[in-house]
């Protein structure tokens, strides 16, 4: 009986050693012990072709953002949750070793910075939203497949909706679904080019519902992209925070 117990302990110890060895070979992936580097560009290229994107969710209560990867001092420190109370996320632009180049939700639109991969958790999405201001329409894609399309209202002349690549920074449910923001509002990582502040906020853009469906199909907003309440509700139920949103020229 004694010998069996000791043997069990030896087997467990051997299994532990083997497990730790395997973990050690994979946990140092970003330092070169992971999969061969030749595999990484292939995987990234495949995701690009499928229109996929990676979303970086901040771990902890703040994250250091650097101008260049490998910089010692941080260029900015962003809090999590963000100003709207949502866990901070970024859309990943480039992966390079233990660093990620990410889109930043700051002015000017399209700003990027570098964060350490170990400071975030990665997830992915194959879905994206494209806004066509000329056609006053939106299309939600899953790879190459069209999931949904509908009408939008964009910014009026003095408060245009700027073109660019953005992402959903948070999802807010207004207290009154029959109000100006409709049933839901997805904050965007971009800002109005003309409004520095609005309603006490920093002039942040959004994709949101509306209580003026008749205005869809034209220029009516202060820069936000308005969609019907049915469409924003569908988006809220099917799109992740961090989903890319492209506003074409």
């Amino acid at each position: 009986m004694r010998q069996i117990k000791v043997h069990t302990g030896a087997v467990l110890a051997a299994g532990l050693i083997a497990g730790l060895a395997g973990c050690g070979s994979s946990s140092g992936g970003d330092s070169g012990n992971g999969p061969p580097k030749t595999d990484r560009p292939t995987a990234a290229a495949a995701r690009q072709r499928q229109g996929g994107a990676e979303i970086a969710t901040v771990r902890g209560s703040r994250i250091a953002v650097h101008k260049q990867k490998g910089d010692g001092a941080a260029w900015k420190t962003l809090s999590s949750p963000n100003e709207m109370g949502a866990t901070r996320v970024f859309l990943v632009d480039v992966r390079d070793g233990g660093w990620l180049k990410v889109l930043l939700p700051i002015r000017p639109n399209g700003s990027t910075g570098w964060v350490k991969a170990s400071d975030v958790t990665l997830s992915s999405t194959t879905r994206r939203v494209e806004i066509d201001p000329k056609a006053f329409s939106f299309t939600v894609f899953d790879g190459d497949k069209v999931l949904r399309t509908g009408k939008v209202a964009t910014g009026e002349g003095g408060t245009p909706t700027p073109p660019g690549r953005f992402y959903f920074t948070e999802l807010v449910r207004p207290p009154d679904p029959d109000g100006a923001y409709g049933a839901y509002a997805f904050g965007l990582s971009g800002f109005s080019p003309t409004l520095k502040t609005f309603a006490g906020g920093p002039g942040q853009l959004a994709v949101h519902g509306t209580n003026k469906a008749s205005a869809l199909g034209g220029k009516a907003s202060h820069g936000c992209v308005r969609v019907s309440n049915d469409d924003i509700t569908w988006m809220a139920e099917n799109l992740a925070i961090g989903t890319p949103v492209v506003v074409t020229k």
Partner: peptide, 13 residues
């Protein structure tokens, strides 16, 4: 899919 935060937005609208 994103988890909605209840609140009053202050986006440009």
């Amino acid at each position: 899919p994103g988890k909605a935060i209840p609140g009053t937005p202050n986006y440009t609208g």
